[in-house]
Simulated scan of single mutants.
Amino acid sequence: MTYTKKTGEFTRIGDTVHFTIDITLSAKGSSVGSAQVAGLPYAKKANATSACAIYMSAVTSCVGDTALLAQVGAGTTTINPRKMVTGTATILTDADFTNTTILRLDGSYKV
């Protein structure tokens, strides 16, 4: 993958990390498989919840009644973006992205 924009900011207050991530692809390349955003500054507490707002544009399969969601994996520094279709959450894959996909994430989690 190549990017025209890949930025992130975070603030840690006590045991809570707040983050903002903005990614714009210029080419998705030959990447295949599940989508992940890696590199958060601290690992999420294993038994804590996380809250993420997600925005995407220029995508292939997230249309109509599809809801987007994302969560930080337990004990990791990785965000797993998902789509909810007819009540089932599935991890986004390379098939969901185009060469110009924009992905924005805002959220918080406990460490």
Rank of each mutant, 00 (worst) to 15 (best):
T77N: 08
A74R: 00
L92I: 08
T98F: 12
A89Y: 08
T98K: 08
I91Y: 04
Q71S: 12
T86G: 15
V85H: 06
P81L: 09
T98E: 12
T76F: 10
A74Y: 07
K83E: 04
V85G: 02
D96R: 03
T101I: 07
T98L: 08
R82I: 10
I91W: 05
D96Y: 02
T100V: 05
G73Y: 06
L92M: 14
D96Q: 11
F97C: 05
T78P: 05
I79H: 03
G73A: 13
T78Q: 14
N80M: 06
G75D: 07
A89G: 12
A70I: 08
I79K: 01
D94A: 14
I79S: 00
A70Q: 01
T77E: 09
D96F: 07
G87W: 03
I79M: 03
V72W: 01
R82K: 13
T93N: 12
F97P: 00
I91H: 05
T93L: 12
A95T: 15
N80P: 00
T100P: 01
G75Q: 09
T100D: 09
V85N: 09
T76S: 14
F97G: 01
G87M: 05
P81T: 09
P81G: 10
V85T: 14
T90C: 01
I102Q: 10
P81M: 06
K83F: 12
N99C: 14
A70W: 00
T101H: 05
R82V: 13
T88V: 10
M84T: 14
A89E: 13
K83Y: 11
D96M: 07
T77K: 14
A89S: 09
V85R: 02
T88K: 13
G75V: 04
T77M: 04
N80E: 06
I79T: 03
V85P: 02
P81W: 03
T86E: 11
G75A: 05
A95N: 15
G75I: 04
T93C: 15
G87D: 03
A70P: 02
A95E: 15
I102R: 04
T88P: 12
G73L: 10
